[in-house]
Amino acid sequence: MSLFTPDAGLLFWMVIIFGLLFFILAKWGFPLITSMVDKRSAAIDKSLRDAKEVEVRLSEMTAEHERMLSEARKEQSVMLKEASDTRKAIIEEAKTEARAEADKILSEARVRIEAEKESALRDIRREVAMLSVGVAEKILRKDLSDAERGEDYLSTLVEEAARSEKTLS
């Protein structure tokens, strides 16, 4: 049957036409398409890889940023604490210094007061001595003429003087 026997004419034309078609398509058709698409898929692969890399780097940077922030915060708190410590220390020191100064001034004042008191006492004593000598002179001048009474009186005076000396000292 003619369906199962290849016809020579059709074979001839098929070889020529298919050959030409293959030549044309293999030269200007398919390789161009496939190479462009291959190039494109390579570009897509590359950009996907790049995107992933960028993502990784971004997350790294975020972590770094986070870390720096927390470090700064820690430093800040440390600095604040230090500052307050220093302030306290300075105040404390100032207080102790002031106290010491005050003590010194007080003690100096006390010493001076003591000295003033001493000299004042000395003056008073001298004055009292002079006065008592004057009084004595006046009394003596008036009462020593009366010998007997004068003697008693003298001894009383001496006793009194001695007592007052005691109280004065």
Binding site: D7, A8, G9, L10, F12, W13, M14, I17, F18, L20, L21, I24, L25, W28, G29, F30, L32, I33, M36
Partner: peptide
């Protein structure tokens, strides 16, 4: 010896031209 342009040969020519046009137009896009 018969190399007539039969129905099948004409169809073959037309589809070959059509295919060439389709693929070359696609290639032209790229």
């Amino acid at each position: 010896l018969d190399i007539s342009i039969t129905k099948n040969v004409l169809s073959l020519m037309m589809s070959a031209v059509l295919l060439a046009v389709i693929v070359l137009l696609t290639a032209r896009w790229y």
